[in-house]
Write a protein that binds this DNA or RNA. Structure first.
Lengths: 207, 207
DNA sequence: TCCAGTCCTAAACAGTTGTTTCATCCGGTC
DNA sequence: GACCGGATGAAACAACTGTTTAGGACTGGA
């Protein structure tokens, strides 16, 4: 895979554009223009727009794994709390980063709301493993207090928060201009979601 | 406004289609076909697709207010907890209902992720009031424990959960098929989000 | 009866979309 | 030099988009 070749430039341009405006709204012409290639090159190298998108999913998934490994260098004896913190931080980074490492997270978020035919593949490949990991974390944190259904819902509530600040950023930053979503803001956000969720899990039964 | 007239049928068709697939993906021809009207009727009655959308926002906002009033028949001395419960339940209903009462909520959710020129109007008209109401609720529940920034973030975390189960329903129902989002499911979900959020607010400082 | 106005229709318009065609270029090989 | 095959380019393609046109059908009042 020549990183300067036309094929790779197309993939790169597609990642930048599709992760920002979605598969349907991104046009082949815009992608090719950004890649400095002819419109016909998409068919030549990938067979069509849809195939380019599928290839982008594969590529960006690997790129995402490289930058956000499932177990981000935590010591083997790290506490569940530390693990949850790492999970949340990684989730936020995955969405708010810039560049190719964040493409997959953004594409994933789009697929959740407006699925294409690729959703099933994404669910099995990326989302389900993350969901299972999160559920196991919650289970450990909750001890014997929560039943399976409650653990599941708590996991979804945590993922909901991680996604929301990216998905609804257009509104959040309008209503709360004081809320910055830069690098430091992500750290603060991590602390908040962790505190909110830990307290929620621990006090769930009482409430 | 004749409810059987062409103008209203267009509005109704637009509500059904645009709330489901978004402004850009919905085509004038599909809307007109569903309304049993000629393609030219959109220009005739509204002046264009964009104007039809703006009119739909106005109409569906009123329709939404009618079905989900800001203060849903709670006694004047209702506790903050009861108020939060009503807020969450109303939020979930607003999104998971079917028919015209849910159009605005769904359009709002779309605008948050993929804003059109109408977003600013929606923020001021609908989102900001809701956000303020939610923030005030959290403030009352938290007492003097949380500072302004923490109260704000807790409010966003609650809204995040309410939206997530609708926005990511394609994925949630795939990963957790046991999670039903019918009428009873919404009631259970209300209980969960309330318990999760109450515990979170109360235990925030400790965590 | 005529007119004005509202409502509606079929058809065409101009622009954009993804795809396709076909000629051309370029580097290596015989 | 001739030739080949991958890579590129300009242009056209058919399908679809929102919009517009030109007129027809019908009503109610003058």
């Amino acid at each position: 895979m020549d990183q300067g070749g036309t094929r790779f430039r197309l993939l790169k341009a597609a990642g930048e554009i599709i992760s920002r405006k979605g598969f349907r709204a991104a046009t082949v012409r815009e992608i090719c223009a950004r890649a400095g290639a002819n419109v016909a090159s998409v068919k030549y190298y990938f067979g069509g727009k849809k195939r380019l998108y599928e290839e982008l999913l594969r590529y960006s998934f690997e790129e995402s794994l490289r930058n956000y490994p499932p177990d981000p260098g935590l010591p083997a004896d790290a506490s569940p709390t530390d693990r949850l913190r790492a999970f949340i931080r990684s989730y936020l980074m995955r969405l708010h980063d810039e560049g190719r490492s964040s493409w997959f997270g953004k594409l994933m978020t789009r697929e959740m709301f407006e699925p294409t035919e690729a959703l099933d593949q994404i669910v099995e490949q990326a989302i389900r493993p993350l969901a299972l990991m999160l559920r196991e974390l919650v289970r450990q944190l909750a001890g014997a207090e929560l039943n399976a259904g409650e653990v599941l819902l708590c996991g979804v509530s945590i993922a909901a928060q991680c996604q929301h600040f990216y998905r609804a950023r257009a509104v959040v930053t309008r209503v709360y201009p004081e809320l910055r979503l830069d690098r430091q803001g992500i750290e603060d956000l991590t602390d908040h979601i962790l505190a909110f969720s830990l307290a929620a899990i621990r006090g769930y039964k009482r409430a």
